[in-house]
Amino acid sequence: MIAALRSGAMGGRLSGLLLVALPVALLIWLVLWPVLQAMVGTVYFPGTGFSIASYTYFFTDAYSLRNLWLTLWVTALTSVLRVVVAMPIALYLRFRTGSIAALVQALALFPMFVPSVLVAYAFIRVLGPNGIVDTVLVALHLPKLMSPYLTPAGPIIGLVWDGLPLTLLLLLSGLGRVSIASVDAARDLGAGSWTLFTRIILPRIQSSIIVTLAFNVLGLFSAFTLPFLLGPASPEMMGPYMQRTFSDNADPLNATTQAVITFAFCAAFGLIYVRAIAKGRKGTA
């Protein structure tokens, strides 16, 4: 680290490369190389040459496009919902201490320890048909709930629940950099809550929000268990769709093509994060 800092002043080209060498080597060896092989396998066929037929098929197949579209909007909606739900909790936790705050945090982070399969089971037992909510409603002589199980709302509820901790943790760690003193000072100068939030807090946690969204997009694009167990049979999200193409249809070519397409969407989002980081660096350098 010391070396890094010193040479950082001198440009740090070599020490930078040295510091990232190990993870990058692991990445190239066990991820990038296999990914590249898989990608090439979708366009180059030994003996017959290049072909982009599987991509043409995907983008002309209404069924595949409907699945992609569903994935996109479930991803967008779920990410926004997660941030909207997590942000007030994060703000509260940042500026409050005490045992209630500790309990709130412990509770809000709890879904992290619940494996998806169990989330699905708990969901079915609670919100599912004749689940505990229905049981209570019937006992109170009220009409039963319109169960979200096997409807498009099912996986969204499950995913928001399941993803709350990660979103909260990332926002909270970003908020850790907002000093209570600066917020207090601004409040003493007469700034309202909304002004405080938009003028002082938001700018400082920008990179955290972007990284939160990036992780949400990544996770949702490949989400499998919850959409599969809680959602309707069709349209499918890309995760279950790829899995089905791969094992049930025994069609690795089209499955890998779908994988490359999802990957491209995730990479596009990753690029936004990288650009934000690069911008931040220039801004403060």
């Binding site: 069924y63 409907r66 309707p232 049979a233 069709s234 349209p235 499918e236 049930d248 249809n249 025994a250």
Partner: peptide, 15 residues
């Protein structure tokens, strides 16, 4: 394969 994939394409979406 024909039954399974066909079902997804022809039956499942009609809800």
């Amino acid at each position: 394969k024909a039954v399974q994939d066909g079902w997804y394409r022809n039956v499942a979406p009609n809800i």
